[in-house]
Design a protein around this nucleic acid. Structure first.
Lengths: 331, 331
DNA sequence: TTGTATGCGTTATCAA
DNA sequence: TTGATAACGCATACAA
C-alpha cells in the first residue's frame, strides 16, 4: 500500500536540518536545543513519520525487544505467564513479541527461530521441550530465560514440581486412597519432576505406581486412562500432570457413568479457570504462573540491561487447592 | 553473549569467494555452481553462520513475515484463530510472529505497534476494538487482514454474528422462554452484531429485550447478571456474547442455588472446550474460528504475494450446538 | 556463472 | 550544539 515510507531524510529536509539531528531529536537523546527539537518533532508528526525499527536496530546493534516463546495457546498456564511478563515489560516500556509452538507437537524450533531471526534482545521461553544441550547452544547466540523449567547455566524461573506432585499425591494418600494412577506428560528434559515425585511418594507408601502417558490434549488423556478404568483393580484416584489431562479423565469418567469425587477422585495441575467452575470443582495444584511470568520479565529486563549479571535460578512453591473432586474412597 | 555475529563477509573470506556469491548461495537463488554452492554452505555451517533477518529485510525492503495480533490469550477463539492461521502460514514456509493486547482492556495499540515496528509484511488482526477509521489509517502503512470483524475496504474474514445471535435467541424462544436476558460485550465498532440481532429477535416476538454489559472477564459477567437474577421478573434464560461470560453467569447461578437448564437456560458463544465438558454441557454458537484462521492465512499470503489483489470480504455461517444448558422453562 | 558498486534507514564517531 | 562520514549486514541491478 504505502508507496514509500517517510524517512528521517525526508523529515530533515522538511525541517531544514541534518539527518542526524533528526535522529537525536526523535530518540530524545541529548544534543539538540529544545526549540529545534520541538520543530523537528512537529514536522515528523506532520509528515507521518514512523521510525523503521529494522534499520534502527541494525545500526544500533542492540535490540530493546523482549521475545516470548510459548509452547501453545491452549494452556492457560502460558496465558498466565504472558500476562505476568507483559506487566513487567510494559512497565519498562519495552516492546514484546511472541512466538508460539505447535500444540501437542514437540516442535518448538520454528517458533524459537523466528524470534531469534527477529533479533530480539532477550528470549523468554515457557514450555520448551528441547533438550538442555540444544538450549545451551542456543544461549550462545541470544540471552535465554527459561520459565517453568530449570536448565543449569541458564536463567531459570520455575515452580518446584517435585513439591507440587508430592502435595497432590500425599493428599490422596491421606484421604485413604491406595490405588492411585498418574497421567503423565510425554517424557522430556526438565519435565520429569511431577512423575518422579508421584512415583517416590507411592513407593515410600509401599504402593505400586501406575502410570499412563498422554500428550497435551484432552482427548489423549481420556483415551489413555480408559483401559485403566475398565481393567481390574481400577484406580480409586487419578493424579494428572495438568488440568487439561484431568478434564480428559473427567470425560472418560462421564462416559462410563462414574461419579467424580465419589467413584473416582481426581487431582489436576495448574488450577485453571475450568478447575474453578462450581460444576467442575477440580482439586488442583496452583503453580502461580502469573507470578512466574512477572519474575521472568524482571530477569529478562535485567539481562538486557546488565548482560553480565549472575545467572538466576529461582524455584517457587506451588499450592494445593482442594476442591470437590477429591474425597475418601468409597467402601 | 555472542561477541559478534558471523557475517556473510566472514563466510566469504573463509570460503574464498565474494560476499554476494555467498548471499546468492545461502538464499538458494540461481547464479552459482552446484559445487561452489555446496562449499559455501558447508563453510557457513562450519562457522555457525545465521542470516541476520534485520539486515536482510532492510535491504530487500520486503518482509516475508506474517504478523498476528490477538486481543488476548485467555479466549480460546483466538487460540483457534492462531492454530488455523499457523497451519496455512507454516505450509507456505513463512515465519509468524505474534503481538497480544491486554486482556479486558481496549488497549490494542501497543500490541499492534510492535508488530508494525517489526515491519511484518502483512498483519492479521483478531479481536481489534479500535474504530474503523483508525484501522483504515493503519492500513495505509501495512496490509491489514481483519479476523472476526468486518471493516469496509479491508480484507475481512468473519463470522455472521447476526445469524449466530438469531439462532441462539430463536432457540430459546422456540423452547418457550419469554424473559430472555442478554449479556453483551462492551460497545465498540464491529461488535454490535450479536446484541442487535438479539434485540431484533425479541422485538419481532413482541418481547422486551433486557441487556446488561460486561467486559471480557468471567467475574464481570457474574456481577453484571446478579441484579437481574435477584430482581423481580428474573429471566428464565440468558444469552451471552461469549462462553467466558456464560461461565460467569453459571457462577452467579451456582452461588444462588439455581440449577442450570432447569431454573435458568443458558446459551454461550464460541463453543469452547469448557462448553463441551459433560459437567457443563453448555449450549453455544460455534463460529468455526479455526477455519477462519485458516482462511485469514490464505488471504494474508495472497496479500503478501499479490498486493494488488481485490479486497476479500468473507462471512461464514456459525452453527448452534445444543446441549444440556437449554430446556423449556419450568412452569 | 562470477564479481562490482550502490542502496536500505538508522545510529555512531568524529570534527567543527 | 551541529554537521559531515562511516558503519550495520545484506540484497540487487549491472557489467565482466
Amino acid at each position: 500500500m504505502a508507496a514509500r515510507d517517510v524517512t528521517m531524510a525526508d523529515v530533515a529536509r522538511a525541517a531544514g536540518v541534518s539527518r542526524q539531528l533528526v535522529s537525536i531529536a526523535l530518540r530524545g537523546a541529548p544534543g539538540v536545543g529544545a526549540e529545534t527539537k520541538e520543530h523537528i518533532l512537529a514536522t515528523a508528526r506532520r509528515l507521518g513519520y514512523h521510525r523503521n525499527a529494522l534499520a534502527s536496530r541494525l545500526a544500533s546493534r542492540s535490540a530493546d525487544v523482549v521475545g516470548l516463546y510459548l509452547q501453545d495457546l491452549r494452556n492457560e498456564v502460558f496465558a498466565d505467564v504472558h500476562d505476568g511478563l507483559r506487566e513487567t515489560i510494559a512497565a519498562e516500556g519495552l516492546p514484546l513479541v511472541l512466538g508460539v509452538g505447535v500444540a501437542g507437537s514437540a516442535e518448538d524450533r520454528s517458533g524459537l527461530r523466528t524470534l531469534i531471526a527477529a533479533r530480539v534482545g532477550v528470549l523468554v521461553a515457557a514450555g520448551v521441550v528441547m533438550p538442555d544441550a540444544e538450549l545451551l547452544q542456543l544461549a550462545e547466540r541470544i540471552p535465554l530465560v527459561m520459565v517453568s523449567r530449570a536448565v543449569p547455566g541458564l536463567d531459570s524461573v520455575y515452580s518446584d514440581d517435585t513439591l507440587g506432585a508430592r502435595k497432590a499425591t500425599e493428599h490422596l494418600l491421606k484421604l485413604g486412597h491406595r490405588r492411585i494412577a498418574h497421567v503423565a506428560a510425554p517424557d522430556g528434559d526438565g519435565y520429569r519432576g511431577r512423575r518422579r515425585a508421584y512415583e517416590a511418594c507411592m513407593a515410600s507408601a509401599g504402593l505400586a505406581p501406575q502410570v499412563v502417558v498422554a500428550n497435551y490434549s484432552r482427548v489423549a488423556a481420556a483415551q489413555a486412562v480408559g483401559p485403566l478404568l475398565d481393567g481390574d483393580d481400577a484406580p480409586t484416584a487419578v493424579f494428572c500432570h495438568n488440568d487439561t489431562a484431568a478434564l480428559g479423565v473427567m470425560d472418560a469418567l462421564a462416559s462410563r457413568g462414574l461419579a467424580l469425587g465419589e467413584d473416582v477422585s481426581l487431582v489436576g495441575y495448574d488450577d485453571s479457570e475450568a478447575a474453578r467452575l462450581p460444576a467442575i470443582s477440580l482439586t488442583s495444584v496452583d503453580l502461580h504462573a502469573q507470578e512466574m511470568g512477572r519474575r521472568a520479565g524482571e530477569v529478562a529486563v535485567q539481562r538486557l540491561r546488565t548482560p553480565g549479571a549472575p545467572v538466576v535460578d529461582e524455584s517457587s512453591r506451588p499450592t494445593l487447592v482442594v476442591r470437590g473432586s477429591t474425597a475418601p474412597p468409597r467402601e
